[in-house]
């Protein structure tokens, strides 16, 4: 029942999107007018404030802290997730044993586990990295596992009829066949690792964007809150859009 979309040109799409974006900005502006400067900064005000705080350089130490913890957490989540996913996908029984557990852990409020991580690692970058990686590793494992599981046996058969050596089989058949799924996992894992890192900063930390956000609540600094929220949302959306482009390209080929 998917309605066939009329062949809309790029112009029409851009127009529709502009209308939508305009609507969002209008609602935001309206909230600002109704609620006043204290309740909500205007879109333009937020933009100006953001530009000014970036220029002043006072954001940088916090931004670097968040980015550093996030980067380490993501590298950890990605490498552990791909490795675990490959093993669980290849060894069917292990995969069958682990999958429901992974899915269950995926859908619980993991934030409640953060105090445990704090007790083990102490407040600091160690706990932030561990918590960020904990969020990201599960989807990467699950997607990789499914990618490996779903390699069509006929590909391997076909490769064997061509007498391909094991290393070449991995390089020319197995990796390209699983890459699209693995990449989707890496994209989803990216977003979740970011959430995990920010959450850890919001609860117990002395640095980072998450910490700044929480600090601003006490002082009712709506301009800081709005501009940081805006920055984080833009960062997440743009990173996701870039990865989505690669993701689509990989899946179209597959």
């Amino acid at each position: 029942m998917k309605t066939a979309l009329p062949q809309a040109g790029l112009g029409a799409r851009a127009f529709d999107f502009a209308v939508f974006a305009g609507l969002v900005l209008a609602v935001w502006q309206l909230a600002h007018v109704v609620g006043g400067e204290v309740a909500m900064t205007s879109p333009l005000g937020t933009l100006v404030f953001t530009a000014r705080s970036i220029a002043s350089g006072e954001l940088w130490p916090h931004f670097e802290a968040t980015l550093g913890a996030f980067a380490i957490a993501y590298v950890l989540a990605a490498s552990m997730g791909v490795l675990a996913g490959a093993v669980l996908g290849y060894h069917r029984l292990s995969g069958e044993v682990a999958e429901p557990v992974l899915v269950a852990v995926y859908s619980i409020p993991k934030v409640t586990l953060y105090p445990i991580i704090l007790l083990f690692f102490g407040i600091g970058i160690g706990a932030e990295v561990a918590f960020g990686a904990l969020h990201g590793v599960i989807p990467i494992t699950l997607f990789t596992m499914n990618g490996v599981r779903n390699i069509k046996p006929v590909y391997i058969k076909a490769a064997r009829t061509m007498r391909i050596r094991p290393y070449d089989l991995l390089r020319t058949v197995l990796l390209p066949a699983t890459l699209p799924e693995v990449f989707t996992g890496l994209r989803v894992g990216f977003s979740l690792t970011l959430i995990g890192t920010l959450l850890s900063e919001m609860f117990g930390s002395r640095r980072g964007i998450g910490f700044m956000l929480m600090q601003a609540i006490g002082l009712h600094h709506m301009d800081i809150i709005m501009s940081l929220t805006f920055l984080l949302v833009m960062f997440a959306l743009m990173a996701n859009a870039a990865m989505l482009v690669i993701d689509h390209r990989l899946h179209r080929r597959a």
Partner: peptide
């Protein structure tokens, strides 16, 4: 509307929703 909303829905869960929490507390 579908055509405009679809890409936003697929990007929705990449946004860390919790970062809006401080804003709502102040509001």
């Amino acid at each position: 509307v579908r055509r405009t909303i679809d890409p936003l829905l697929s990007a929705y869960y990449s946004v860390p929703v919790f970062v809006f929490y401080p804003m709502f507390i102040v509001l």
